[in-house]
Nucleic acid binder design. Structure first.
Lengths: 142, 142
DNA sequence: TGCAACTTATTGTATAATACAACTATATAA
DNA sequence: TTATATAGTTGTATTATACAATAAGTTGCA
């Protein structure tokens, strides 16, 4: 393997993370930031989940998720459903407005990605999605 | 274009940024974090630069760069060379230990990327580097 | 059954990276 | 020469995060 390829990945990754971070901290569409978005994404995919499960899925500390959940609850995007089996725990359930704003934010993000890749071939987009996913999986497992 | 491809890129990008962020906030190799690394990278590529130029290249506020520079100076990684043409300004110059630790950090990052992609084909690595760079360029320009 | 050990979630505290605003010193242009 | 612009610093605020301590509830076992 040529080391220069790794160097390129390594550098572009550092650049990417900082650019994307700075975009998402400026471009708050509506009320959602990236963290909130990922949390709502989990709920929209898996249905109601508790703080602990979310923390595992998101690879965050439970305290962080607890605060994110509290903030989303204050905005009316989720509400807590008591878990009758384990009375320490709740399920976080998406509200209608949470679902709506999540979808709106997602749409805005998609539009942005569409613009960013409008001169790419379909194959490049597919490759990029594929490799990003593969890379994320590697981070998780290695 | 199929929307599902964009959705995949969009989601994996959000995941990536958070994972990489959380890795680099934990894995501080030596004294360097990602921000410091990117700053030193600029100096190692372009030679001595002032705070303003760095801020432009890094797409950060000058105040942010000023603080990063102060922190790197305190660690002995850079020093300020007065600009005799414009006496408001300095050039930030890498020190020997700054260069050394930068290279060491870079090596550690490369090793990490090597592990993460050890079951990839060379072509996949090349594609990934290429697409990341292309994507970063798009963010900058669009 | 009742206590010890564990678990879920919250809250207190700390840190890091960032931006914006106010300021100082200097440079430039009318 | 005076007004405006610029380079850099510092004060302040925000956001995302982690770790530690704690409250409330659960579980396992003697």
């Amino acid at each position: 393997m040529k080391n220069s390829i790794l160097e390129k990945i390594e550098l572009e990754m550092a650049v990417l993370v900082r650019r994307v971070t700075s975009i998402t901290s400026k471009n708050k569409i509506g009320n959602l930031d990236r963290s909130a978005y990922l949390l709502l994404h989990q709920l929209s995919v898996h249905g109601p989940l508790g703080v602990k499960t979310l923390a595992e899925k998101l690879q965050l500390d439970t305290s962080t998720v607890s605060r994110q959940a509290a903030s989303l609850e204050k905005k009316g995007y989720v509400y807590k459903v008591p878990d009758h089996v384990d009375r320490r725990a709740y399920f976080l359930q998406l509200t209608k407005s949470g679902t709506e704003d999540f979808n709106e934010y997602k749409k805005a993000r998609l539009d942005r990605f569409e613009v960013l890749t409008d001169d790419w071939t379909d194959e490049e987009r597919e490759q990029f999605g594929h490799l990003l996913k593969k890379f994320n999986k590697a981070i998780l497992e290695k």
